[in-house]
Amino acid sequence: MRMSRTVDIELTVNGESFAETVEPRLLLSDFLRETLGLTGTHVGCEHGICGACTVRVNGVSARSCLMFAVQADGATVETVESLGTVSSLHRIQEAFRKHHALQCGFCTPGFLMTVKDLLERHPLTTNADIRDGLSGNICRCTGYDHIVKAVRELANERDGVAS
């Protein structure tokens, strides 16, 4: 079995700097979960479909299962742990809670990071836009309705429109 040379990387995750030595094949998702212990990022498919592993890399959403940790050398990564805390939820998390937009919660971190991106960079004029923006994240529990409601409220708030 071929072995590969390890690589030293430095990156910022949720505002904290890390210097680690990794095997090139280590997926960013596994790096976050196993090397850093940030288990809020979930893994549901490892082939880019489910979106559970969505994080933000240098300010935009990305699948952490489709990146190697070595590629994040020098990058700024944000995971769900960068949002609010149990006692002080982030506004997106609050909206998800208010609208019961999660059940088992497994898909939720990926949705939250996607929604953060959508709110920052997408108009979301109609609910169809919201659904389209969410289409890269699979939720098997909620049927999406409550998630769409939560994002609608957030988008309206962002746009200063009454809900």
């Binding site: 979960r33 809020g40 149990v86 939820l89 998800f96 919660g105 939720t108 971190p109």
Partner: peptide
């Protein structure tokens, strides 16, 4: 919700 929303849930894969 608060724990699941903040990535503080504990699924089996998270356990070490």
């Amino acid at each position: 919700d608060p724990r699941l929303l903040t990535g503080a849930g504990r699924y089996v894969a998270d356990m070490v």
